[in-house]
Design a protein around this nucleic acid. Sequence first.
DNA 1: CGAACTGTTGAATATCCTCAATTTCAGTGG
DNA 2: CCACTGAAATTGAGGATATTCAACAGTTCG
Lengths: 242, 242
Amino acid sequence: MEYPIHRFRGVADLTDREVEILRTLGDRPVNRAKGEPIHREGQAVEGFHLHLAGWISSSIVLASGKRLIQKVHLPGAMLGTPSMVLSFAADNLVPLTPAVTAFVPFKRFGRLFVEAPRLAALLTIATQLERLALMDALAVTGQASAREQFARMLIDFHTRLTPIGAVVDNSFELPLTQEVMGDLLGLTSVHVNRTVKALERDGLIARRGQRFTLADMPGLRALCPLPPRRPRFNLEWLPPPG
Amino acid sequence: MEYPIHRFRGVADLTDREVEILRTLGDRPVNRAKGEPIHREGQAVEGFHLHLAGWISSSIVLASGKRLIQKVHLPGAMLGTPSMVLSFAADNLVPLTPAVTAFVPFKRFGRLFVEAPRLAALLTIATQLERLALMDALAVTGQASAREQFARMLIDFHTRLTPIGAVVDNSFELPLTQEVMGDLLGLTSVHVNRTVKALERDGLIARRGQRFTLADMPGLRALCPLPPRRPRFNLEWLPPPG
DNA sequence: CGAACTGTTGAATATCCTCAATTTCAGTGG
DNA sequence: CCACTGAAATTGAGGATATTCAACAGTTCG
């Protein structure tokens, strides 16, 4: 199994050499069982993980015991990079489905800055994109209603699942329990349930098991508290391809 | 006025050449009036800003008109870097006090990756630290009570103001209106006021105008929903100094 | 000194949470 | 094939936290 690099291609045309470096960046792929933590808050970390398959959550636990899922990652992500500035992991990485990851020691990552400067810049860009996602999540969590948040979550998954071919007719599998959705949005599972049922009743969405159909896209978009971000292709300030 | 580089020194020993590059990174400093936007959401951007003096907020406005202040920046920050992956600015940068900034075109920033790889890596690290701050803010905004959030905000400012010498006897000036604090925490100004008064009544803090005194640090820390982050000094995976 | 902003307080309300019970469903073993 | 199990989804009732609306006091600044 190989690292899906569609996210980098989305930002710049990669040279063959750069593609080769990306493909050989990680160690041998590792299978991860659902629910088995990849790393835990507070553990020492020596590298990050390339996300090859499955759904993986990154969460933080508060003193009160409450958990917030900071992001649900999809294949192509780099997991655990925020911890590269710490002695101990900042978050809990837990697969929500069976998943596959490949380890990248920070040392190998550090060499990129010398050996493939443009690739290093692209990784910086990937980090900025994650930061933007967090900014938006923070704004929405802080100021939007449960209904608005839920609509945004659905459209966000719709947007992110499309490039990996997991959306058909505005319909996709969402392998998250309502409790997980609650931890992702900062709501209780009870309130998530009431919100889902309300959206269904109003004809905005339909469900069959964990398959969600966005029945009324204009309606959902109107509910969305924020417009989608449009990353820029081929940034002209990047260093020359190496 | 010069760019305060204490944040980078906090992560690695800089060489003279690196210090020199950092000091000459920005254009001539510009004075910013309180309330005069440095840039607005949706505007085209060609670079970011080094933060030399004053307090500057970065905010996002939702479709509903509600505003969330994503972060209140202090001198030493790099402002507007998330927008480097977009055609249009992601946030509104507005000084909360008179402030000074210096512009850095993205082109000049991009050259760093070739000319000073370790410095480029340090800027990546700065971004990861901001990302961590957002992760924590998201967790707290999503799951903590107003009282807990407020305690955390105070301890956060205490921590960040200390290295720039703005804290004396657990006491510091906080040039934010209660409405700004509300937008920062995802609360209304009315509820911020009630929360402040309650903390005062309980002897956890004292106020005189905008000067806050953290009268009961242990009590405030106990209220904090998250422990403080401890960035690591001298990361051994960084590329060699250039 | 007056205007505008900020802070403060009360009353009514809304949203979301907590607790608890019940139903549904997928998977297991008899 | 069916009962059994545990997890997840669903629903109701009551309560807590935070919002909204509104009024008023205090500050700042031209």
